[in-house]
Amino acid sequence: MTDIKAEIDVLPGLDSSARLLEVEDLRVEFRTPAGVARAINGVNLHLDPGETLAILGESGCGKSVTAQAIMGILDSPPGFITGGAIRYRGVDLLKLPEEQRRKVRANHIAMIFQDALSALNPVFSVGFQLGELFRVHRGMSRQDAKRRAIELLDMVKIPAARQRINDYPHQFSGGMRQRVMIAMALALDPKVLIADEPTTALDVTVQAQIMNLLAELQRERNMGLILITHDMGVVADVADRISVMYAGKVVEEAPVLDIYARPAHPYTKALLESIPRLDLKGQKLNVIKGLPPNLTRIPAGCPFNPRCAYTRDVCRADPPPPQYDVAPGRTARCHFWTEVAGNEPAVS
């Protein structure tokens, strides 16, 4: 499905040879009455066309905030981007004026939210909410927009799209609603899709259907996909690379198979050990002790040190561990990554 969009609004400085998406040293803080919460403290990410990057972490680790910062929909105040760059094909989105930034959304970078029931406007029909994209961004007439909306519903395999176009969000089932969300995100043929826990609110059987649909649509369009999740099971099936986040930092980044085989950060390792596994049935499940840090008082040194089994003095003192290169395309923020990766026998 080729579109004339690229010609319509070319971003100044758009360089098709540059990386599709590159986040560099991104910093975000929330200024609240209770203090300044440093939600993101120097996140680096990159994404290529057709690639799926999974961002993994507990709630509050900053994965959703990262997504909102990339989209430019951070609630501000209280959220402020205090540093770094988000480059889309070489254009730093953070330096764009709001009017152009707005056009990047949905046209180039789109997003799917967790709970489709609350993420869709309850008082407008699905057709209106889909067609609105074409009317606002493409200047289409109501009829043309509606026709395109029906095509979109067909594309995400909603049965009887023509009849359902005038239905309201609450009249769809959970899975169908998430399909509507996907259709809405893909309407303008974006190059980057961010999916924030797209299947968390759904039944397990429906989850697989939605993930398959996403993967299929991604392949067709050669889109870059950022998949935000806390579910390691989902990740293994679809992701190419994984970035594990903790306290607003990427603590480990690696191709998906490597990370499962030999995690190089204690946090990743602990996460993997906390997944229930059939072959270890009957044994006690390893859960991570303690809670994620309060973002207004992140501990000095490595933020994971209070919960980590490998902690030594150096972990408790600033500067925090730098990004160690573990292997080509692999990094870990742990002073003892060799120990962590070495101790674990390869998972069979």
Binding site: G290, L291, P293, N294, P299, P306, T311, R312, D313, R316
Partner: peptide, 21 residues
């Protein structure tokens, strides 16, 4: 030594780790 030292500060900071704990 390093193990015992690791225990005490970790235990001391643990309550602070929680949200407003």
């Amino acid at each position: 030594e390093s193990v015992t030292q690791a225990e005490t500060p970790a235990a001391a900071t643990a309550p602070n780790g929680g949200d407003g704990g």
